[in-house]
Nucleic acid binder design. Structure first.
Lengths: 276, 276
DNA sequence: CGCAGAACGGAATTTCTATTCCATTCTGGG
DNA sequence: CCCAGAATGGAATAGAAATTCCGTTCTGCG
């Protein structure tokens, strides 16, 4: 009885797992090949799944998945899984010390920054729920769904927010138009009754955006505004105001709350446009 | 004997865990407070660690960690862990299929969508910590800080990510150039040795971005790539690969992890360029 | 068509982990 | 300084998960 498979020694890191996977897949029997191909596409699931879950996801019996692990050179699932879990915890030790030291030393390691921004992101998302009312959101979504065209405007920091909305709307077949900076006021001429304007602007509020919003509101066209403060000058003329406050790290902000809000809004609009 | 703690019902998602954590930490006894504070900073470890590991990391006995879980309202560690293990599926149905999914799951109503995306945002941020290594990030940040010009490229969904980076770099006085879609290959001619390229692309990967990255890498210029999957074709030619996997809601994704990562990176680059 | 070897899936088994229990230690009030 | 109630850590237990075993099914070749 010669276990050729088991003779190979086990991969010692994720890279080797992938290489081994690619090397042996072809020679595997049907079920194990299933395991190989699903696993190859979903490596990240291994760290958090039980054998039975992986097996089920592959459409295979747990024992088959077991044999698959062994075909890769591991003694079993546990050994393979530990590789993927280690990858997650690997850099922790160094990180632990940093958490202790960095706060005091004030040193700015990239990892520390990432942790801070991540933390800020959590806080922003938590805050989001409390500053937005479902009713307001629903009204905006319905209004956008009924509109001929949704016009999007946002400059500087707000630009990446509206550009992501524009992308989603485009993918979803919702008629939307993204307005860019230069000569934006003229763009107002392309906005007609039946349309709506969604303006995003953060303090300090960009003049062009504010001016466009006001000129549109005066014409009786609905204007919705996403901002970070009640003091936003668009507030006066907007039909609805959305406030997404971002937590900051040393004066810098990521856009977690805003993007989460606009993504949800865009999807809602699409859903409302095509009932059933 | 009144178990006030145990009376509360368990959090049902990550958002609630964080809120509960922040709410009760103060009132916890010493050991459990240790658990709370470590856990709060290391949420991502829960998914891949055993109780004994978490306990050790907190400097606490397993039974104490157990009590901590219960103080949060869970029946035990297993219940809490299952919240953090909820999977990020790689499966991406076509857009219209996604909407059908949304309708079936009853996740309609804009408010509900917002809550779902917010929850997904929390999970994405938690996952971020586990897919990125400090060392890789540091190398990228240093490389960008040393570069003559940082070139940014990303199309479609990735565009809002690079455009926000471009904005931050601009604000911070870091020389950066954002490349747009049309005729992008020609843009390669404006990239020289001493520069670096930061490419962002998500599955399905946009050809232009991949082609540009490859053509630049061939010339020996460092290419860094932010993507959502190990399968990204740029991986082969990139000096460093960053993976930010976004949790999805019925097939739709917000960009929390990506933006948090790129924002932190941009700030780090600036910090490295001007120490002190 | 039948046979041999491989592949398979389900059930039995073993190993390991989460959870509970309890004796001991700690803390704060009198 | 002592006592009562809470908190703690370690050992015992219950439970679940990984792994193995084995009878059955499948595949390819004679």
């Amino acid at each position: 009885m010669h276990d050729e498979m088991a003779v190979q020694d086990a991969p010692t890191n994720v890279t080797e797992v992938i290489e081994r996977l690619d090397a042996v897949t072809d020679r595997l029997p049907k079920r194990l090949k299933q395991c190989a191909s699903f696993t190859r596409q979903h490596l990240h699931l291994i760290a958090v799944s039980k054998v039975s879950e992986m097996a089920e996801a592959c459409g295979v019996a747990p024992s088959a998945y077991m044999r698959f692990c062994q075909a890769l050179g591991f003694s079993g699932y546990t050994e393979m899984q530990s590789l993927f879990r280690a990858r997650v915890t690997d850099f922790r030790p160094a990180y632990n010390e940093r958490l202790a030291n960095l706060r005091e030393t004030g040193a700015m390691g990239t990892g520390r920054l990432l942790a801070d921004f991540s933390e800020a992101g959590h806080k922003s998302l938590i805050g989001l729920a409390s500053s937005v009312t479902n009713e307001g959101l629903d009204r905006i979504a319905q209004s956008m769904a009924d509109a001929r065209v949704v016009h999007l405007v946002g400059l500087r920091r707000a630009f990446s927010v509206v550009s992501s909305m524009a992308y989603i709307f485009d993918q979803l077949g919702v008629p939307a138009q993204l307005h860019f900076g230069a000569g934006m006021l003229n763009a107002g001429r392309a906005i007609f009754p039946g349309d709506v304007l969604f303006a995003v602007t953060y303090a300090p509020f960009s003049e062009e955006t504010v001016a466009l919003a006001k000129s549109i509101a005066v014409r009786g066209i609905p204007v919705f505004c996403l901002t970070d403060s009640e003091k936003c000058p668009v507030a006066d003329c907007a039909s609805e105001l959305l406030i997404a406050r971002e937590d900051e790290v040393g004066g810098f902000r990521s856009l977690n709350a805003s993007l989460t809000l606009t993504t949800a809004l865009a999807v809602a609009v699409r859903a409302l446009r095509e009932p059933g």
